[in-house]
């Protein structure tokens, strides 16, 4: 009954002549007698343009502050004396981008992420779906996962080195572990929150058990699965970088740590920025995939 109330009070039936919903934001340009293509575009994307400008300005301010504190070697309890300035970092980036070694570091990290994350997704999503569907399986696996889940992936490093024949495999394993649990738990949670009336509607339309699973439970859980993938990707990077710093050869985490050991301070910052950008790019890729696979939620 409560569900019925929640979904109550829909807007009155608008009918085919309903006006299209107004574009959000875009109160910037005043209405003219004949709005040109430009002002119309400005009005439609006004919000996005303003957000972009503000964002660029705030990044510029941040870099400026960084410049000021490092050029003047300020010591405000936090010591900026040894911190490289933006121009130092730019110079080292210039050098690094020209060398094939830096690129190898990046590619190595990307490959490890890809293997570990893809493996985690390929195991955790089906497992989560099945656990959501079959109670016995859930009751069997859930306690184990609850015990293992709180252990940070980094704590697995020594164990991973023992378990796997090579360094490469143990790093991929750490990355896998980091992303596995967020994906599993979100998938499971998504399965638990599927509106059962949808399953019943499908059965009334002649769907078999398997068809209900494929046509209802899977798509209904997809948004939660993507939440899991996004979180999992973040944790995968955290785990990867830590693992590379501890036991790596190659990889952007290793590059960053090595820069510290070799007293090449600008490279530390270059490594950090690269890690940030890679993380950003991978979560963007996941969001893009989500948009493609879930066109209905983009319409919201």
């Amino acid at each position: 009954m409560s569900r019925a109330i929640l979904s109550a009070a829909p807007p009155p039936d608008l009918g085919p002549a309903a006006p299209p919903p107004a574009a959000p934001g875009g109160g910037a340009a005043a209405p003219e007698a004949q709005p040109s293509a430009w002002t119309r575009r400005l009005r439609r994307h006004g919000g996005a343009i303003r957000a972009g400008l503000v964002g660029a300005a705030s990044i510029a301010l941040f870099v400026l502050a960084w410049h000021v504190v490092t050029e003047n070697r300020m010591n405000l309890y936090v010591r900026f004396g040894n911190v490289p300035s933006p121009s130092d970092v730019l110079a080292s980036a210039d050098a690094a981008l020209g060398s094939s070694q830096f690129l190898t570091h990046i590619l190595t990290s990307c490959r490890r992420i890809l293997y570990g994350f893809a493996l985690a997704a390929a195991l955790a999503i089906p497992l989560g779906l099945l656990m959501g569907r079959f109670k016995l399986l859930r009751e069997m696996i859930f306690p184990v996962s609850e015990v293992l889940r709180p252990i940070p992936a980094i704590a697995w490093v020594p164990m991973a080195i023992m378990l796997w024949p090579s360094n490469e495999e143990s790093i991929v394993f750490i990355t896998f572990l980091g992303s596995f649990f967020p994906i599993l738990l979100n998938t499971l949670h998504g399965m638990a929150t599927v509106d059962p009336v949808l399953g019943r509607a499908a059965r009334c339309l002649g769907a078999s058990e398997a068809a209900v699973f494929r046509e209802v439970y899977l798509p209904a859980t997809l948004p939660q699965i993507f939440t899991g993938l996004t979180v999992g990707m973040g944790v995968a990077w955290v785990s990867l970088i830590a693992a590379e710093m501890i036991s790596g050869q190659f990889g952007i985490g290793y590059f960053t740590w090595e820069a510290y050991s070799l007293v090449q301070y600008p490279d530390i910052v270059l490594g950090m920025i690269t890690i940030g950008l890679l993380g950003l790019a991978s979560s963007f890729a996941i969001r893009l995939l989500g948009r493609v696979l879930m066109p209905w939620s983009a319409a919201r």
């Binding site: 019925a4 949808l198 019943r200 509607a201 009334c204 339309l205 002649g206 209904a220 209905w296």
Partner: peptide, 21 residues
Amino acid sequence: KGPGADRGVIFQQYSLFPWKT
């Protein structure tokens, strides 16, 4: 014996599949 397409059902709650047009 069980649900089937010979009996169409409209439920008390909305039950269109949100992911389908």
